[in-house]
Design a binder for these strands. Structure first.
Lengths: 231, 231
DNA sequence: CGGCACATTGAGGTATGTCAATCTTAGTGG
DNA sequence: CCACTAAGATTGACATACCTCAATGTGCCG
């Protein structure tokens, strides 16, 4: 981890990329930026670990992160796949609880670290910010319950397909937010099963996956696969 | 659904049972209570359905509820099992989003319905209440990520055992929060598999399950089952 | 008392995990 | 700049845990 000395306005610009801070008056954003730190993490480095005290709100400005949690057997499981720009661990920061999970960089990451005290002060000054942060929390909850519902889906291809549908941009294309190995774990599959599921979807002509990016070729065929996984 | 005419102090008493409202001055609690409705729902009735506007905060004072969400194939999946006293759908209320899931009573339920305007006003008057509500949100997120991590666990018995451990009171005993059919769905299992998993844990001497209640007899044996489900 | 939903137990099929080999890609150092 | 190494991705063969179907038992509500 390296702490950077940013040119003026850079940090505030990173904050402006997020819905939670975009609506804020520019002056407030710059005030927060001035009291925050800009950090660079290498691939595989941990932003924080489970049990750490929640000292800063992590704003992921560039890069991607996977969030891990222990299974009953002790092995870690991927519970979030995050891509910049986004917030990380916003709820524990607000409540002051210790962090319940570990976050690891999937690539080189640029992070704005907002000290808890600065955030709390900003929320006190502008209650609207609190509501905007709650919006982010709502999104997170939505993602989690959707993920949970999808885990119950029989048929690996159906799970993968549903996930791709949710991930696709309007044009039907998108980028995998992590290595296939980690995506597989996130979806509750072995890497081999994930690979085979992609192969099935490809053979159906539903999607095209090359390297890190994908494109939905036939939405109808894809939705057919989801329904076909009877239950 | 029936709206009740409670004796004075009854509704405020229901609110006091929750951490989020317990710390509040009694006068504030009674003010909220005075502007809320006390309702009675029958077994199988829906508190709300996915897509409904978020008009009231539901405080579950008595009974139990299952929260459902659609899978990719369209079939519903249980994503929460809630037991009184607790809050239901607190985040959508705060953000004003439409409700993303459906809630169904597992038995006869008593509910305090706090209109959104009343809640917002109470939060404005006492910011401390907002932080307490956030505490509840934190708990909910915790439960969800834990559930997600557990779903990746191989071995039905291990998943069930881990869940029982998290559910058990200090004495090692507890009550199943729903019919076995719904618990099974929540854990991502067929009812038959859930039944067999319980049978395994019983034969190991780890737990005793009779009807609706259970007791952890041998925590060490149970933890052994969790680890044994190698991966 | 009868009907229905839920729970349990048994038998058998299948999707997915596991193990193993090959191939590709990226990162490292000469 | 290229060879070397290691990690990830893919494909195949096999094993197994869970789902499915079916039958029986049990409690609850009409």
């Amino acid at each position: 981890m390296k702490t950077l000395q940013p040119a003026p306005g850079v940090v505030a610009g990173h904050l402006a990329a997020l819905p939670a801070f975009h609506g804020l008056p520019a002056a407030d954003r710059e005030r927060i930026a001035a009291e925050s730190l800009l950090r660079l993490y290498g691939k595989g480095e941990a932003l924080f670990r489970a049990g750490d005290p929640a000292t800063v709100l992590v704003v992921l400005a560039r890069g991607s992160v996977r969030v891990l949690r222990s299974r009953p057997d002790g092995h870690p499981k991927v519970v979030h796949l995050l891509t910049a720009p986004c917030l990380v661990a916003e709820v524990p920061i607000l409540t002051g609880e210790p962090l319940p999970a570990t976050a690891v960089c999937g690539e080189e990451c640029v992070v704005v670290a907002i000290p808890r005290a600065v955030l709390v002060e900003a929320v006190r000054r502008d209650p609207e910010l609190a509501m905007r942060l709650l919006g982010a929390v709502f999104e997170r909850l939505q993602q989690l319950t959707r993920a949970l519902a999808h885990h119950g889906q029989r048929g690996a291809a159906a799970r993968v397909g549903a996930w791709l549908l949710g991930l696709a941009h309007d044009g039907g294309s998108g980028v995998l937010p992590a290595a296939k190995k980690d995506v597989a774990d996130y979806l509750g599959l072995q890497p081999e099963s994930f690979s085979r599921a992609l192969a099935v979807l490809r053979e159906e002509g539903a999607v095209d996956v090359t390297d890190e990016s994908f494109r939905i070729l036939d939405r109808t065929a894809l939705e057919a696969v989801l329904k076909d996984a009877e239950r």
